[in-house]
Amino acid sequence: MKVNDRRRFRPDGRPIAEDELGAAEPAALPDAEAATPSVEEPRDAQLAAQAARIDELTRAYASLVEDNKAFRQRQERERARVVEAERAGVAQALLESADDLERALAAVSGAGEAHGDALRNLVDGVRLSLAALHKRISDLGAQRIPVAGVPFDPHVAEAVDTVAVADAAQDGVVVQEVRPGYRIGDRVLRPARVRVGRLARA
């Protein structure tokens, strides 16, 4: 036979009366309720720490995205700079060839009639080659700098000579273009060579 002894004892071994036991039992409830916050406090601290870590990682990720974007922009600028430099180099080489052809045409101008059809055909062929060369130069983005009839600008032109002029309006103005200048975008590929008017003093 199983016997359940529901009596409670004090530390000195004396039994606790039932009326004392009944009064003491409700007092245990506040202890159980007080234990609940002690379990929730570490949980709240852990959640706060995790939220702080998430915030830190979010800021780090945003900074990484900005750094990556800045890196791509630098790479794009560098690529554009290299491409523009290569185009400028090719255009300069073509311009030198065009100058040679223009000098050859100038040397034989008017000689076609004196030397017959063969020379005239050669001159026409050189003119066609020169036109094709100028088209390739234009396709590279090189544009001729207009300087004739405008005030001399040392940023886009080189003065190789001065010409005496009587009109004060022509003083400091480009009166002749010796060699054309070209630019690609805002970059001067080569400056024009010009003659500049200088007012003759009486």
Results as ranks from 00 to 15, higher is better:
residue 47 L to W: 07
residue 71 F to M: 10
residue 111 A to V: 04
residue 80 A to D: 15
residue 3 V to L: 05
residue 79 R to H: 13
residue 102 E to Y: 12
residue 24 A to R: 09
residue 118 A to H: 13
residue 73 Q to A: 09
residue 115 H to G: 03
residue 38 S to N: 12
residue 8 R to D: 10
residue 56 E to C: 01
residue 23 A to H: 15
residue 117 D to S: 13
residue 73 Q to S: 09
residue 115 H to W: 06
residue 19 D to L: 01
residue 79 R to W: 11
residue 85 A to I: 06
residue 87 R to L: 06
residue 48 A to E: 15
residue 16 I to M: 12
residue 77 R to Y: 10
residue 28 A to I: 07
residue 96 E to P: 02
residue 10 R to I: 00
residue 113 E to F: 02
residue 105 L to E: 13
residue 89 G to R: 03
residue 132 A to P: 08
residue 112 G to V: 02
residue 80 A to Q: 15
residue 95 L to P: 02
residue 81 R to M: 09
residue 125 G to L: 03
residue 67 D to W: 06
residue 130 L to Y: 13
residue 61 Y to W: 07
residue 35 A to V: 01
residue 88 A to P: 02
residue 32 A to Y: 12
residue 39 V to Y: 10
residue 40 E to N: 05
residue 24 A to H: 10
residue 68 N to L: 09
residue 85 A to W: 08
residue 90 V to C: 01
residue 52 A to E: 14
residue 35 A to P: 07
residue 131 A to T: 15
residue 33 E to I: 03
residue 64 L to C: 07
residue 26 P to L: 02
residue 21 L to I: 03
residue 4 N to E: 11
residue 93 A to Q: 12
residue 36 T to N: 08
residue 105 L to A: 02
residue 19 D to F: 02
residue 134 H to F: 08
residue 134 H to T: 04
residue 116 G to S: 09
residue 112 G to H: 03
residue 126 V to E: 09
residue 19 D to C: 00
residue 123 V to A: 10
residue 45 A to D: 14
residue 16 I to P: 06
residue 110 G to K: 11
residue 87 R to A: 07
residue 14 R to W: 06
residue 130 L to N: 12
residue 19 D to R: 12
residue 27 A to W: 12
residue 10 R to F: 02
residue 24 A to I: 00
residue 44 D to Y: 11
residue 65 V to C: 02
residue 127 R to H: 07
residue 65 V to W: 01
residue 94 L to A: 03
residue 91 A to V: 02
residue 78 E to Y: 04
residue 121 N to H: 11
residue 17 A to M: 03
residue 113 E to R: 14
residue 25 E to V: 09
residue 123 V to D: 04
residue 115 H to E: 15
residue 24 A to P: 01
residue 107 A to R: 10
residue 18 E to S: 04
residue 95 L to R: 07
residue 30 P to R: 07
residue 65 V to N: 05
residue 92 Q to D: 13
residue 129 S to N: 10
residue 120 R to D: 12
residue 28 A to H: 14
residue 44 D to L: 06
residue 117 D to G: 03
residue 119 L to S: 09
residue 59 R to F: 01
residue 36 T to V: 08
residue 74 R to Y: 06
residue 34 A to C: 03
residue 71 F to A: 09
residue 129 S to E: 11
residue 61 Y to H: 10
residue 135 K to S: 08
residue 127 R to Q: 12
residue 107 A to E: 15
residue 129 S to F: 00
residue 119 L to A: 11
residue 65 V to I: 05
residue 63 S to C: 01
residue 121 N to F: 05
residue 23 A to I: 06
residue 90 V to P: 01
residue 17 A to V: 00
residue 68 N to W: 10
residue 74 R to L: 07
residue 9 F to E: 11
residue 83 V to H: 14
residue 124 D to K: 15
residue 101 L to G: 12
residue 6 R to I: 08
residue 124 D to E: 15
residue 71 F to H: 14
residue 76 E to D: 13
residue 47 L to P: 08
residue 54 I to Y: 03
residue 117 D to F: 04
residue 10 R to A: 01
residue 94 L to F: 10
residue 25 E to L: 10
residue 129 S to R: 12
residue 74 R to G: 08
residue 54 I to N: 05
residue 132 A to D: 15
residue 87 R to I: 00
residue 2 K to Q: 09
residue 56 E to V: 01
residue 85 A to K: 14
residue 16 I to L: 09
residue 71 F to T: 13
residue 96 E to M: 04
residue 53 R to L: 04
residue 11 P to Q: 12
residue 69 K to Q: 08
residue 84 E to K: 10
residue 58 T to F: 02
